Amino acid sequence: MHQKKIITSGKKISEAEKALIMIHGRGGSAEDILSLSTHLDVKDFALLAPQATNHSWYPQSFLAVPAQNEPWLSSALQVLNDTVIELIANGIGKENIFFLGFSQGACLTLEYVSRNATKYAGVVAFTGGLIGDKIYTDNYSGDFNNTPVFICTSNPDPHVPVERVQSTSVILKDMNADVTLNIYNNMGHTISQEEINLVNEIIFNVK
């Protein structure tokens, strides 16, 4: 099970009106994903980056049968939920909470918000899709109420099939998310400057 360890940056939670939860990928760290914030328009945000135990949120591919990723997957989802609860307790409502994840962290981000759909400030998924050997639609409920969501990936990507990304986008749209889906040919498993620019425009400059 994951030990709750959250690295913070930016404004103090008690002083911020907005917060960004940043979820690192497999083999990454909270510090790694936090460093991305220097390229984002989040200077007035509280920044929170949970650290996965052993640097991985779940052991198998996100395309594995979910039971093969337990109990780690449920524990990881609980870490995100606990982080949200902490922000709410400090006066930052869900409508002012942003999420951002890369790769395994993007999959976890999408899985969490889709299981707990409501009006969030914004969601960024750099190369990710909903988790499972197939998409288990019974897991997802709620209404995103036009939450802006940016999902992107490379075609092909060595870890995330583009078909899963596309299917994920459809499900979130059906749950009333305002989804922007960008697929880049042969970009590789990375985050590009163009993606950063679009995220700043579409997600973090929302008025």
Rank of each mutant, 00 (worst) to 15 (best):
I88G: 06
Q78T: 13
A106F: 07
P71T: 05
G93I: 10
N139L: 08
G93H: 15
N139D: 04
V123G: 12
V113K: 12
C152K: 12
P158E: 06
A117I: 04
F98D: 07
L73T: 04
A89S: 15
G93S: 15
K119C: 09
L87V: 14
Q78N: 15
V162M: 06
P71G: 04
P156S: 01
Q78P: 03
N90Q: 14
Q104C: 09
A125Y: 01
N116A: 08
G129F: 01
A117N: 00
V162R: 03
V149N: 06
D133R: 04
G142W: 06
P148V: 11
D138R: 01
Q104W: 03
V160A: 07
E70W: 08
C107V: 02
T109W: 12
N145R: 14
V162N: 04
G142Q: 05
Y112M: 03
S103R: 08
K134Y: 02
A125W: 05
L130F: 02
A89F: 13
N145D: 13
V124P: 08
K134N: 00
E111Q: 07
G91A: 05
L77G: 09
H159E: 13
T153Y: 02
C107G: 08
P148C: 10
G93Y: 14
D143H: 08
I151Q: 03
I97G: 01
V160I: 15
P148Q: 10
K119V: 05
P148Y: 06
G91H: 07
P71F: 06
T83I: 02
P71C: 06
R115P: 01
G101H: 10
D138N: 11
Q78H: 09
G101N: 13
F98A: 07
G132A: 05
V84R: 14
G132F: 03
N145V: 08
D82G: 05
G128N: 04
T127Y: 12
I135K: 00
F98W: 04
N139T: 00
N90I: 13
I92H: 02
F102C: 11
G105S: 11
F126L: 06
T118K: 15
D82I: 04
N139S: 07
S154Y: 07
D143A: 00
D143S: 04
N146H: 10
T137P: 03
D133Q: 01
I88H: 05
N155E: 13
E111F: 02
L73R: 03
S75Q: 11
D157Y: 09
F98R: 05
Y112Q: 04
I85V: 15
D138I: 06
D133N: 04
C107T: 08
A76P: 10
D133C: 03
T153C: 13
G128T: 09
S141R: 06
L87T: 12
N81V: 10
W72I: 03
G122M: 08
K119R: 15
